[in-house]
């Protein structure tokens, strides 16, 4: 497992990764690295394979060619490896995916008790600590259906944090939210970034990318077309497709 103190330890490495849905080629020769503590923002047009890329990192999708190495463990068909990786990698979804039949607190403690084998009391203490961090401890006894979208997404982030993940993946965490709720979620993500969490984040929030990303990656049609620091990426894009994409999303 990666040692925290060494600088530039690699958290994720993808080498020549290819993936097909039946005969549709979604990921084409992806080479991609994330260093420990790095924050990477992935953007690109709809259907370009961004979700597929980060879902491969926590093995929600299988890849057919190439190698993916996460925290020093190769993702192959070895089930023990996959279980170990999934425990160390958290994921936040566009649709929150909170468990609707459990309270906010139960959502957070479920994996702590089942996977981390904490006692109920310990688990609740940890959960409350992270609910405070995302600033909704007072909602802990409510059900997800009783919360606003922004609150639900913050609970989802807290739920991931409870597992103390080494890497946190975000798949368009704010695109299902009403505009006035986007910033409360982004604030939480910025705070996490500032604490040094390793993050891979698919988002079209360019303000967020400028503020926290170490690197921005642009994908189109299953390929990584361009990657650069946020400043260079936004000010001097080199690829035509990047320029077109940026002109489209920055119009609004």
């Amino acid at each position: 497992m990666a040692d925290q103190s060494e600088p530039n330890v690699i958290a994720v490495t993808m080498k020549a990764v290819n993936k097909w849905y039946d005969d549709f080629h979604v990921l084409k020769d992806i080479d991609f690295q994330v260093a420990d503590g790095e924050k990477v923002v992935v953007c690109g047009p709809s259907g370009s394979g961004k979700s597929t890329l980060i879902r491969c990192i926590c093995k929600l999708e299988d890849h057919q060619k190439g190698t993916i190495n996460v925290l020093g463990t190769e993702l192959n068909d070895n089930v023990a490896n996959i279980d170990e990786i999934r425990r160390e990698v958290g994921m936040v979804f566009q649709q929150f995916n909170l468990f609707p039949h459990m309270t906010v607190l139960e959502n957070c403690t479920l994996a702590l008790t089942l996977v981390r084998k904490k006692s109920r009391k310990e688990a609740e203490a940890i959960a409350m600590q992270f609910l405070e961090k995302v600033r909704i401890p007072e909602q802990s006894t409510k059900y997800p259906g009783e919360l606003s979208g922004g609150q639900q997404q913050r609970v989802a982030i807290a739920r991931s944090l409870c597992m103390n993940p080494k890497i946190l993946l975000f798949d368009e965490p704010t695109s299902a939210l009403d505009p006035e709720m986007i910033s409360e979620v982004l604030d939480v993500m910025v705070a996490l970034a500032e604490e040094g969490m390793t993050m891979v984040c698919v988002t079209h929030e360019m303000g967020f990318a400028r503020r926290v990303a170490d690197r921005v990656i642009f994908m189109d049609a299953g390929e990584i077309v361009e990657q650069n620091t946020p400043f260079e990426f936004f000010e001097n894009p080199t690829n035509e497709r990047t320029k077109l994409f940026l002109s489209q999303i920055l119009q609004h």
Partner: peptide, 30 residues
């Protein structure tokens, strides 16, 4: 049940039995 429910369980590290008994069946019964 939306597929995201099971995926959320997976990314939290729950095994098959845990996902079935804690996430899928309670919602399926409802």
């Amino acid at each position: 049940i939306p597929s995201g429910q099971d995926e959320a369980g997976l990314t939290l590290g729950l095994n098959y039995m845990q996902r079935v008994t804690r996430i899928q069946l309670p919602q399926a019964f409802r």
